[in-house]
Each structure stands twice: as C-alpha cells, then as structure tokens.
Amino acid sequence: MAQVPVMELAEAMYKMVKDTMGMKKWKATDLQKASIEMFGEGNVDKQLCKDAIKELVNNGRLVYTYFGGSFLEVPHKEGAAN
C-alpha cells in the first residue's frame, strides 16, 4: 500500500474544488470521501486528508467559508462586503 504524497493529494483536492467552483460547496469530509474514492482506500486515509487540507489553507490556496456550515473554497471576494 503506497501512500499518496501529501502534495499530490493536495493538488488533486484543489482541482476538485476549482473545477466545481460555483456548482458545488465542499465540506472537509466531502473532500475526504472524494479523495478516498479517487485514490482508493489504503492509499489515502483521514490523517493524510487532514494534512492535505492544512497544506492548502496554510498556503491560502483554499479558504474556509461559513454559510450555515463550514466549507472550503477558492478565495474570492465576498458579496456581502459590497
């Protein structure tokens, strides 16, 4: 069982979020489920997903947003700020 490198997983997650911008809101657990589906169980686990998300938000490539629940999104300007 070869674990996927964190950066590769982070890249894949980023693409999922970016490609579905405006169509789907991702929660951390949705990204985890989708990642496990994509790479296969045994190659990706919960901790690795947490690490990949941490990587993405620490670099500011994804940001957390709150609309009733917490979601991960590509940074953009807030509508309410206008």
Partner: peptide, 20 residues
Amino acid sequence: WKHGGIVGVMGYGGGVIGRY
C-alpha cells in the same frame, strides 16, 4: 446587518464571524 461567510485569518477556518 449582513452576515459574511469568508473573512478569517490565514490557515484558520474559525474564530472570526463576518458582519457588514
């Protein structure tokens, strides 16, 4: 008041509640 959903500090998903 309007609710904001995006503001925060880098790396964190909690701790800031946006209002305009």
